[in-house]
């Protein structure tokens, strides 16, 4: 049962991510990325992390992807102009090199990981502890309180920076 769910979610995530990269229209890319994030949220539920699954949906699919959609619609660029610019600036050799490097990365990662022994997840009482939001909140606001406050400043800086950058000069 768990294995079936894992393979279904993994297939959705991989296929949707491949289509994100392969898609010409950025609008479809954003939509497919939302599908991929949904599948990842399912995987988080399988990993006993319901809080992360919910934040994945709310923050990623709900906030960040809406921001992307907004910009795609605002700029209204339908397709990328591939033929002229790519040939003149980078050349197909550069793209072939990039594709080769990423395939090499995939092979290397899978090869290295397949040499590991099987590491099975524990099924003890600690599993229940991990999925409790209370424990996450306690660790977040005691052990990691400084990092938490630092992210709030980061968000403020990002907000001010985005407003300053996107503002029209007059």
């Amino acid at each position: 049962m768990e294995a079936v769910a894992f393979y279904i979610f993994a297939a959705i995530a991989v296929v949707a991510s491949l289509l994100v990269v392969g898609q010409r229209n950025p609008m479809y890319s954003v939509m497919l990325l939302i599908a991929s994030f949904g599948a990842l949220a399912g995987l988080y539920v399988l990993l006993d992390a319901p809080f992360t699954a919910v934040t994945q949906i709310i923050i990623y699919a709900g906030a960040i992807m809406v921001l992307f959609l907004f910009v795609v619609m605002l700029l209204n660029v339908e397709r990328e102009d591939s033929a002229t610019s790519v040939a003149t600036m980078v050349g197909p050799t550069g793209m072939k090199l990039g594709a080769g490097l990423s395939v090499l990365l995939a092979i290397e990662v899978v090869w290295a990981l397949s040499r590991l022994g099987e590491s099975h997840f524990g099924h003890d009482a600690e599993t229940v502890n991990i999925s409790s939001v209370a424990r996450i909140g306690q660790a977040l606001f005691t052990q990691h309180a400084f990092a938490f406050e630092a992210t709030s400043i980061l968000i403020l800086v990002a907000m001010v920076g985005a407003v300053v950058l996107a503002r029209r000069e007059r």
Binding site: A10, V21, P26, S29, V71, L75, G98, V109, L113
Partner: peptide, 21 residues
């Protein structure tokens, strides 16, 4: 799975000629 997803993302950064993608 996460290694495969990371490689797909890397391929996208290398191959795509669109800042949003």
């Amino acid at each position: 799975l996460s290694g495969v997803l990371f490689s797909i993302g890397t391929a996208g950064v290398f191959l795509r000629r669109n800042l949003i993608t």
